[in-house]
Simulated assay, not measured.
Amino acid sequence: MSKIAFVFPGQGTQYVGMGKELYENNEIAKKEFDKIFSNLDFDLKAVMFEGTEEELKDTKNTQPAIVAMSLVLEKLLRAKGINPDFVAGHSVGEYSAIGSAGFLSMEDTVKLTSLRGRAMSKVSGEVSGTMAAIIGLDSDKIVETLKEIDGVVEAVNFNEPKQTVIAGEKEAIGKACIALKEAGARRAMELAVSGPFHSSLMQPAGQILKEALEEFKFKNSEIPLIANTTAKEITTVEELKEELYRQSFGPVKWVDTITTLKDNGVTTIYEIGPGKVLNGLIKKIDKEIEVINVEKLSDLA
């Protein structure tokens, strides 16, 4: 029997006004958003609906904004009788997947995401790091080439077979981009990000997060979450806490994640949240999987 997966996007998909249409035109959405907003110690509603692009781009705002919108949409999709057999999320999208699987309540999931965003914002401000997208070169070749570069530089996001993101120290990233182009990459371009996310330089953020996890009431899930760092199934609180710690400074194995879903009989994936980034990546990983985007009320209709 064919199975369904819900997947959730990560940072970079945000835009000013995200979620406003849902909030103003759907009673369930308004109620769920209000629950989320009232559980936070800052005005996320103002940032999402009326803020500036600059405010929304700040990691500590971006992350909870994306997860809040994704989880409200997920609730509306379930109200139509569509439920997942598996969940997964790309980078911070993994937090949306946690809420979707029922490891945490919706409002606590966004609160935890907010803590993650702050921790990452703090640590990225203390290290001189960045990221770069490498297009048109196999990930194995990228990993091999990076071994020759002085300084910290690591392959961190395995997005699709010919697109991998690297992260590390600014100087090392600059050298790596030159070396990877010489090795055959079609493009190697630095990204406009505030830190070297998912690299070992972010380990202090993992430590902050590890302590914060103890303040939350998690419960085991009946819906398996496919983990970013291992592409393996997680259903217990213990496994989840270990994944959340490691994921803040570990890789996003998106290609392996989609392969795992396919191997488990998934034929339809709902991409839930802002943008259509994952749709594009999934089609390059496996053309046979049907991907349905859920971002607006018209998508739900």
Rank of each mutant, 00 (worst) to 15 (best):
N26Y: 10
G51L: 03
M18A: 05
K31N: 15
K45Q: 15
E21W: 01
A29Q: 00
D58H: 15
Y15I: 04
M18Y: 06
V16H: 01
V47S: 10
G19P: 00
G12T: 04
K20E: 10
N26S: 07
F37L: 02
K20Y: 06
G51M: 04
N26Q: 13
E32S: 12
Q14T: 06
T62C: 01
L56W: 01
N26V: 10
L44D: 04
G17M: 11
L40T: 10
I28C: 06
T62F: 01
F37N: 05
N61R: 07
A29L: 00
T62M: 00
D34T: 01
T13F: 08
K60Q: 15
E50L: 08
L44E: 05
I28A: 06
F49Y: 07
D58F: 11
K31I: 13
Y15V: 08
K20N: 05
K45G: 10
T59H: 05
T59S: 13
F49G: 01
L22S: 03
Q14H: 00
K35Q: 15
L40W: 10
T13L: 05
V47L: 11
K30M: 07
E54L: 07
D58T: 15
I36T: 04
E53T: 14
E55P: 09
V16T: 06
N26C: 13
D58M: 15
T62Y: 00
G17N: 07
S38N: 11
T52M: 11
K30P: 11
M48A: 03
E55M: 14
F37I: 02
D41S: 14
T62A: 08
Q14A: 01
F49T: 01
K57P: 08
F49L: 03
Q14E: 05
Y15N: 14
D34N: 14
K60Y: 13
D34G: 03
D43A: 13
F33L: 02
K45I: 10
N26T: 11
F42V: 04
F49R: 07
L40E: 12
L22I: 02
K31Y: 14
M48D: 03
E50G: 08
F37R: 11
G51E: 06
N26R: 03
Q14F: 01
N26K: 04
K45T: 10
F49A: 02
L22W: 01
E53I: 13
I36Y: 00
A46C: 13
A46I: 13
F42H: 08
K30E: 09
L44H: 05
E53G: 14
L40P: 09
K20H: 06
E55S: 14
A46M: 15
V47W: 09
D58V: 15
G51C: 05
N39S: 15
E21A: 06
M18V: 02
I36E: 00
E24V: 00
I36Q: 03
F37A: 05
F42D: 03
G19S: 04
T13Y: 10
I28S: 05
N39Y: 15
N39E: 14
T59V: 09
F42Q: 03
A46R: 15
E53D: 14
K20F: 02
L56Q: 07
L40M: 12
D43L: 07
